[in-house]
Simulated scan of single mutants.
Amino acid sequence: MTGIRAGSAVALMLVAVTGACVPNVQPPASPPPAQSPVTPPAPPPVPARAASAPSLSGQMIQGGLITGQAAPGTAALSLDGRTVAVAPDGRFVFGFDRDATPSATLTVTGTDGSRMTVPLTVAPRAWDISRLSSLPKVPVPQPEFAARRPAELARIVAARALTTDAAGWRQRFSWPVTGRISTLFGSQRIYANGEAGSYHSGIDIARPTGTLVTAPADGVVILAADAPFTLEGNLLMIDHGMGLNSAFLHLSRIDVAVGDRVRQGQPIGLVGATGRATGPHLHWSLQWQGAKLDPLLAAGPMR
């Protein structure tokens, strides 16, 4: 009896222990029901707007630089058929050539497809004309010039065709160097038999060789001559964005390279007399889409 009782006790203990080791397995929980993605409501459509005149700032004059603010709903702008780029905030810039006609037309296209024309009156200027009736126009020396000039012009044209995201066009231009203005923008000589020389496409500032030249506005370098050009000498060109660019001629040294981003007031080179120059000076020219502008109107009086 004693053995039977002991074996029963052992069996009962085994049952108890085995039961304690069996996990309490619960059936897996059902995944939550899939929810349909919530599609945000579409923004209300922007109503189309009719064309409206922009606000303009600057001198409506030959060689003048104009900045403006497009009216809300403006889809496109053009000046006498040339596209005027408009920034996302509606700002834009354009200019009038030295020989601009007395009238121009700004065409505005609205987001509804409508168009309106804004007539602009361009004031003429009295240019500094020197009449040298007894002096024949001296031809440019042909052999070397004829051989080198086409490639130089091609580089200049290619540089001006580049498009950058520079925003210097938004700034008030500063003078790259200050000093005596030796030749005004637009001045011209008339030689014997009424033969006209090319008008002066920039402004000349006489300063000694080695005088520091700074960027007149933010921009991207689009040309930095590795050797002097026949006429321009050491030529540097900076794009200010929206089709507006500067050129600096006759430098004795260039301190920036193509692709560099420059800030207004940053040193970019030194005054010199390279190329065709009668003495050390900086020739600064400014263009918008090929229209030659007066830097004096862009930078204002020297201080």
Score class of each variant (00 low, 15 high):
L293C: 07
D226V: 09
K137Y: 03
A123I: 09
L153P: 00
P47V: 14
A16H: 08
L236M: 03
D128I: 07
W175C: 06
W284A: 14
G73W: 13
A151M: 01
L212K: 06
G63P: 02
I156K: 05
A75W: 03
G95Q: 13
V118T: 10
S57H: 13
A161K: 14
T101R: 14
P208A: 15
L249Y: 12
R170K: 07
L153I: 14
L297T: 13
R253K: 12
P141F: 10
R125M: 09
L296M: 14
A20D: 07
F185C: 00
C21D: 10
P267T: 06
G19A: 15
P280W: 09
Q142C: 05
R172K: 10
F248K: 12
Q289W: 03
T18V: 12
V46H: 08
A42C: 07
A215N: 03
N245A: 15
S103V: 10
T121L: 07
D294Q: 10
I190K: 13
R98K: 04
R49N: 06
A215C: 01
T107G: 00
F96G: 07
T121G: 04
T105L: 05
G168F: 04
Q59K: 11
P37N: 14
G90T: 03
R276H: 13
P88H: 09
R170I: 00
A217F: 09
G219C: 00
T117A: 08
I238M: 01
M302C: 03
T163L: 08
G63C: 04
L77N: 02
A100T: 15
V262R: 01
L251R: 08
V93A: 02
A146W: 08
T2W: 01
A217G: 06
Q69T: 11
V122N: 10
G290I: 12
W284E: 12
P54T: 11
Q62N: 09
A196Q: 10
G64E: 11
P37R: 13
D294Y: 12
P54C: 04
S130T: 15
G63W: 02
A70N: 02
R148A: 04
I181P: 01
V262K: 00
A215Y: 05
V15Y: 08
G73H: 15
R98D: 04
L235T: 01
T2V: 09
S114R: 10
A277P: 09
P88F: 04
Q59Y: 14
N234W: 05
V108M: 05
L56A: 10
W175Y: 08
G3M: 03
R5M: 02
D112P: 00
P136A: 13
D294H: 04
I268V: 04
L65P: 01
N234F: 00
I190M: 04
G110V: 01
D80W: 14
I4Y: 02
G64N: 14
L231R: 07
I222P: 03
M242W: 08
S187P: 03
A154R: 13
L120W: 07
S55P: 00
A104T: 09
P280V: 15
V271R: 08
Q69K: 15
A257Q: 11
A196Y: 01
P88S: 04
M116Q: 11
N245D: 13
P228A: 06
W288S: 02
T278I: 13
Q62T: 15
D97K: 07
H240C: 06
T67N: 07
A70K: 05
V271L: 01
P280F: 10
A159V: 10
S246L: 01
R98G: 02
